[in-house]
Design a protein around this nucleic acid. Structure first.
Length: 822
RNA sequence: GCCCAGGUGGCGGAAUGGUAGACGCGGCAGACUUAAAAUCUGCUUCCCGCAAGGGAGUGGGGGUUCGAGUCCCUUCCUGGGCACCA
């Protein structure tokens, strides 16, 4: 017969968790006050989407950050560690379509469940500050900010080709298209021309590149830098005056103007407005057909780097401003309309894409750059590196770098071009053709045009009586009462914008709301914000590098420039946790290997689950959940329980041994130092390992009961204080059992004395030719001479140096002697 | 293709250029028990050896150094990100 699982524990985990969670709640222990005089510490983990169930991945993100926040609190900070819910988004709407539940109900019942689960984790969230995006008290401020952006020319509407996901029935931002597929549902994304709202994030491209004010993982900084994609280049105008069009020049952008003597063709993107004019009448039919086909392709086909480079000759020519050569103009779909000028100069000898294009259409390939003077040109590949110019008239012999400067200078002087900087990043498309999001506060009027909803009319409420049909059409389109609205200017009937905002708008400023979650006069109370400012420490997954994290930085800079706040960055420090796997593979419902935290909390308690997640590996590297692994943590908490509930009075004072006291005192101080440093740096795994060693030490010392009673009690108090941020319930219960005052979590973090950490004796390592041959216990104060003497006179060492000549003896103070002997 | 991380026992992992494998899991042996669970004690990188001891060892190859898991070069593998951006 097996005993019930709970009997593996020395204590009633369910009982003490409930007891303390209730007491913390009732006593207001975690209530955060704005007027607390201690220095503020604003620490957040990325909020969860309201999917309904808190899985182990959430725990992995939240438990360690809660531990860190608790640690900062004990260190004397007034800590704001809030929680909220990212509650708008497609899954709620899909659930409504599938199961007939209104998204609001679905979302709110999910939140209910998640709150319950979060409480069980034993976190210090102050629930009075909770933020939920699908409530009008939150999203009205999305609308308000939208109007501010509009006023300040940071929001605009444009009719443009947009990424369309046929499954989600909505457009997507560039950031949400991954390899031509929808980031959410992996459907192939196509292009669709729509009138869309954009935020001018590109206005901030340059400032977003400045990472000097943030302490973030290098990886994220690199990803953002690459995403913004700044490149220096030159606009070059090719003459088309002979064509007799309205315009006399076509504008190209190149980063390699040093290759301009090698231009043998021009390629214009199929979407470019000049295509029609450039196409001669005999070619019109062919070119039209090509353009139609290009637009039909999916993003995947269009963006595939392996795809054959195709194009078609327009029949027109332009003139190279430096060589005066006549250059044919092609339309080709490898040129993107949205980058640079949408027209490129083709230099097949020095660009792989141009090379492939030239090969396919049998165009001239002219070498103008050589790696060095002696280099032979290989006709089968493009040489894309820098080098020395050849066949380039007056620029022959110059290096690429010098030539770029001279040629662009020349072009500028002749008004034929100019130096220029381009960014890969595009403006942020925020329109979504969906119901479950923030309505964009705009009314279209036949007479007045596009009219913003006046501030006093906010919020534009999402109607709650919408009908969900599986057609994919937004319920707002069909909702007469919502759509029909009076024009705020002329009061004539108008039509409301039915698109809603990308949910990343919600998360771009939610942290500001935590400072004053109930404020009614604006998105945040300026006085409260002045106190809490930027988030000091943010934690979350790296997958948000170019979306959420970039958008939030943009928002703060934009709000700052509008005059609403006074700082520059949303998140001063960032820590990325890794991913948690289960027995080596990614957790997914289809694999059936999802770890349910609730089951483990029931079995071994929330503290054990928290600690195991922090122990199984370095937080930033992620880790693997192994079912047997948590037993080790559970045993450890048990040992702590036994150790700290022992009867100290059983120590017989007459038997106390000074040496043991010293050892214990040293152990306490060493442990404090290491644990403090590790918690500070998110090294939870080694912090716990150190605490395990400490408990092992305590167990050993208890065996012969030769330590001082007061010292023992101090050891126990320190142990409990150190585990308090990690295992808050067990620590609180044991604190009480030891007769100490509620609450352990309101105590100061203990400090250590370096004086007690010093070693009195050391194991002197003796090496011969770098190999360890002996270790000798000596005084820590041993002199160099004595150490060398001791080493040489060791019997074990004698064997290894016999008959050899001692060349050199290296001494590392207090550590080792290395005898070099041949 | 380009840019980042990584590669250490059976497993998760630890190691300011100075005793590689802390801590934990698992395993083995023992104690307690009628028995098991739980708990406790000991052992547990590999090879040779009864032992003392010796040898090898941090993906591979090379280098710097008295001494390299750690620094440098090179190569392979794994994970992540980006990728027709002119």
């Amino acid at each position: 017969m097996t005993r019930p699982e709970n009997d593996i524990l020395a204590y009633n985990q369910a009982g003490i968790e409930k007891k303390w969670q209730d007491k913390w709640q009732d006593s207001g222990l975690h209530t955060v006050n704005d007027d607390d005089e201690r220095p503020k510490w604003f620490e957040m983990t990325m909020w969860p989407y309201t999917s309904g169930d808190l899985h182990i991945g959430h725990w992995y993100a939240m438990a360690p950050s809660d531990t860190h926040a608790r640690f900062k609190k004990m260190q004397g900070y007034n800590v704001l560690h809030p929680m909220g819910f990212d509650a708008f988004g497609l899954p709620a709407e899909n659930a409504a379509i599938k199961r007939g539940i209104h998204p609001y109900e679905w979302t709110m019942s999910n939140i209910e469940n998640m709150r319950r689960q979060l409480r069980r984790m034993g976190t210090i969230y102050d629930w009075d500050r909770e933020v939920v995006t699908c409530k009008s008290e939150y999203y009205r401020w999305n609308q308000w900010i939208f109007l501010k952006f509009l006023e300040n020319d940071l929001a605009y509407q444009a009719y443009a080709p947009a990424n369309w996901c046929p499954t989600c029935n909505t457009v997507l931002a560039n950031e949400q298209v991954v390899g031509g597929e929808c980031e959410r549902c992996s459907s192939e994304v196509s292009q669709k021309d729509l009138n869309q709202w954009f935020f001018r994030i590109t206005n901030y491209a340059e400032e977003l590149l400045d990472q000097s004010k943030i302490d973030w993982p290098n990886k994220i900084n690199i990803m953002q830098t690459n995403w913004i994609g700044k490149s220096y280049g030159t606009h070059v105008q090719f003459d088309i005056s002979s064509l007799g069009l309205g315009t006399t020049k076509i504008d190209t952008f190149t980063t390699r103007v040093d290759t301009i003597y090698g231009v043998t063709f021009i390629v214009i993107s199929p979407e470019h407005s000049l295509v029609d004019q450039l196409t001669i009448s005999q070619k019109k039919e062919e070119v039209d057909q090509y353009v139609v086909n290009a637009r039909k392709q999916s993003e995947i086909e269009r963006l595939s780097t392996d795809k054959e480079k195709t194009g078609i000759f327009t029949g027109s020519y332009c003139v190279n401003p430096l060589t005066n050569e006549k250059i044919p103009i092609f339309v080709g779909d490898y040129v993107l309309s949205s980058y640079g000028t949408g027209i490129v100069m083709g230099v097949p000898a020095h660009d792989e894409r141009d090379f492939k294009f030239a090969k396919k259409y049998d165009l001239n390939i002219k070498t103008v750059i050589k790696a060095d003077k002696e280099a032979k040109s290989n006709p089968n590949v493009a040489y894309t590196g820098d080098g020395i110019l050849v066949n380039s008239g007056p620029y022959n012999g110059l290096t690429s770098e010098v030539a770029i400067g001279k040629i662009s200078g020349y072009l500028e002087s002749k008004n034929l071009g100019e130096k220029s900087v381009q960014y890969r990043m595009r403006d942020w498309l925020i329109s979504r053709q969906r119901y479950w999001g923030t309505p964009i506060p705009i009314i279209y009027c036949k007479d007045c045009g596009t009219v913003p909803v006046p501030e006093k009319d906010l919020p534009v409420l999402l109607p709650d009586d919408a009908e969900f049909k599986p057609t994919g059409e937004s319920p707002l389109e069909l909702h007469e009462k919502f759509v029909n609205a009076e024009c705020p200017l002329c009061k004539k009937p108008g039509r409301r914008e039915t698109d809603t905002m990308d949910t990343f708008v919600d998360s771009s400023w939610y942290f500001l709301r935590y400072s004053s979650p109930k404020y009614l006069e604006g998105p945040f109370d300026p006085i409260a914000l002045k106190k809490w400012q930027s988030v000091d420490q943010y934690t979350g997954g790296a997958e948000h590098a170019v979306m959420h994290l970039l958008y939030a930085r943009f928002f703060i800079k934009a709000l700052r420039d509008i005059g609403l706040l006074e700082f520059n960055e949303p998140f001063l420090k960032l820590f990325n946790q890794g991913h948690i796997t289960h027995s080596g593979s990614r957790m997914s419902k289809s694999r059936g290997n999802v770890v349910s935290p609730d089951n483990y909390v029931n079995k071994v308690g929330a503290d054990a689950v928290r600690c195991y997640l922090m122990f199984l590996g370095p937080w930033d590297q992620g880790g693997d959940w192994i079912d047997t692994g948590i037993n080790g943590i559970s045993r450890w908490l048990n040992r702590i329980w036994y150790i700290s509930t022992r009867d100290v009075k059983s120590v017989d004072i007459s038997k106390v041994v000074d040496e043991k006291n010293l050892k214990l005192n040293q152990s306490i101080n060493k442990t404090l130092k290491k644990v403090t440093e590790d918690l500070q740096n998110f090294k939870f795994n080694t912090a716990i390992a150190t605490l395990m060693e400490f408990t092992n030490n305590l167990n050993d010392l208890w065996k012969d009961r030769q330590v001082d009673q007061n010292l023992w009690e101090r050891a126990i108090r320190n142990l409990l204080l150190m585990i308090a941020p990690l295992a808050p319930h067990v620590a609180e219960e044991l604190w009480e059992i030891n007769g100490l005052k509620f609450s352990i979590h309101a105590q100061d973090w203990p400090t250590w004395d370096p004086e007690f950490i010093k070693e009195h004796n050391i194991n002197l390592v003796v090496q011969v030719n770098g190999k360890v041959r002996d270790t000798i216990l000596v005084s820590a104060e041993i002199t160099e001479g004595a150490a060398k003497e001791t080493a040489i006179s060791s019997k074990k060492i004698e064997l290894h140096i016999k008959g050899k000549e001692i060349k050199k003896i290296i001494y590392v103070t207090g550590k080792l002697v290395n005898i070099v002997a041949i």
